[in-house]
Amino acid sequence: MKPQVAFFDFTSCEGCQLNKLNFENDLLDILKHVDLVEFREAMDDKADHYDIAFIEGSITSPSCVERIHDIRRRSDVLVALGSCAVNGGVNAMKNMHPIDEVRETVYGEDKYLFATLPAMAVSSVVKVDYEVRGCPMTQQDFLKLLIALVLGKQPPKYGSPVCVECKLKENECLYNRGMVCLGPITRGGCDAICPSFGQFCTGCRGILDDPNIDGMLEVMTSHGISLDEAKKRMQLYNSNEVQL
């Protein structure tokens, strides 16, 4: 029997889900492997049990917490999709400010009507089995995970920095072009797509395990940006991972 899969979205731009609909040629092949049972962007259906639940977006309110617990109870395997779900992503920038200040900025005097929490990774609330990183997650990466799950193998875990793929493509280093790039400490697996098009890495796939943060700040500041700016860049996608 084909695994029953469902997609759920929390606080996010829903870009990752839209990205999946763009599979075009591959979509039919994917549907050979799985049965879609819940996918708000594409259909409307509810099921009691999911073999694989894909979660997009971060957890930002008490109702999110309740809902993710409910989904977890109904799912065998739970996968976080995209940077918001994996580590909080850009949403987590708000965590660097007092929560009251954030509520006031967003909701003004109605702030008491909206309960809010710091933006959290799905994994800080429920157990996450696998993750697809990136903002947005790439189709390629999503397919790799899906195929791995179909084959019963462990999905790829990217332990190498973006620089590795960038070097193998023989790109000119963006530091040599006067840019400040997060490639050295950012988890790879994206095929170095941004640097390949001349755009410096902003760290959307998260920071490597055991990174040399001080060393990286030194690299960034020695290439012409202030320490404050360097920290901000590092935290753009990774406020929850990098405490500075």
Binding site: P161, C163, V164, K167, P184, I185, P211, N212, G215
Partner: peptide
């Protein structure tokens, strides 16, 4: 050296 190294692998890969 380790305190400066950010572990990108560029040295080996080139």
């Amino acid at each position: 050296v380790a305190s400066q190294c950010v572990g990108c692998g560029a040295c080996n890969l080139t």
